[in-house]
Structure formats: C-alpha cells, structure tokens
Computed example of a mutant assay.
Amino acid sequence: MEKPPHKQGRLTAGPYGQWEEEAKRLIEEEMMRRGIRYKQLSRMLEQLGIYESPDQLNRKINRKRFSAAFLIACLRVMGAETIALHQFKQGQYIE
C-alpha cells in the first residue's frame, strides 16, 4: 500500500529536511560572520516591517520552519549580497 501524502506537521528528514538544514545554516553563518545576535536581528527586521521578538526568531530558525521570504529578508537585512550553496550527498555536505 502506498504511503499517504505528507500530513500537516513537522518534516523530520523527508525530502525537505536537508534543505531546511541548509536554510538554517545560511542564516546562522551570516549571523556569526557579522557578529549579529537574535536581539540585533529582531531590530534589523523591524526596518522591513517584520516584528518578531528575539526569542521568536531563535525558535523559528532552530526549528528550521520558515518561509523562503523570511530567509531572504534575514539575509538582505544583514547585508548579504551573495550566498554559497553547498551540495548534499545522502544527507552529507560536500564542500
């Protein structure tokens, strides 16, 4: 019997698991590179009309459950002009 389509809820590994991890990594690396903490990111996002507390940002990013729009807004507000996408092979990064 075929597996039912994905139910609403958290994808743990599934087809998007590696991409969720990559998105989280992009935000965290940019934050580390620029010495930005969640409180600062929260204030920076307010300039774009995005109001989330530092705790909300921390949870959202660590859960790896956010939209592409949120990812782009975070990277843009931190001043990222380019991003490096690493290749995956069976759930492993290839650098």
Rank of each mutant, 00 (worst) to 15 (best):
M1L: 08
M1G: 10
M1I: 07
E2R: 14
E2L: 10
K3W: 02
K3L: 14
P4Y: 06
P5N: 07
H6W: 02
K7L: 14
K7Q: 13
G9Y: 06
R10I: 13
A13Q: 11
Y16P: 01
E22C: 05
L26K: 09
I27Q: 00
I27C: 00
E28N: 15
E28F: 05
E29R: 14
M31K: 11
M31R: 06
R33T: 03
R33K: 13
I36P: 11
I36E: 12
R37D: 15
S42R: 04
R43L: 12
R43F: 09
R43M: 09
L45V: 07
L45R: 08
L45F: 09
E46T: 06
E46P: 04
G49M: 05
G49A: 05
Y51S: 10
E52F: 10
S53R: 06
L57E: 03
L57Q: 03
K60C: 03
I61H: 01
I61G: 00
N62R: 14
R63M: 02
K64M: 11
F66K: 06
A68H: 10
A68C: 11
F70L: 06
I72R: 10
I72P: 00
A73W: 03
C74E: 01
L75C: 05
M78Y: 12
G79N: 12
E81H: 06
E81P: 00
A84P: 02
L85D: 03
Y93E: 10
I94N: 05
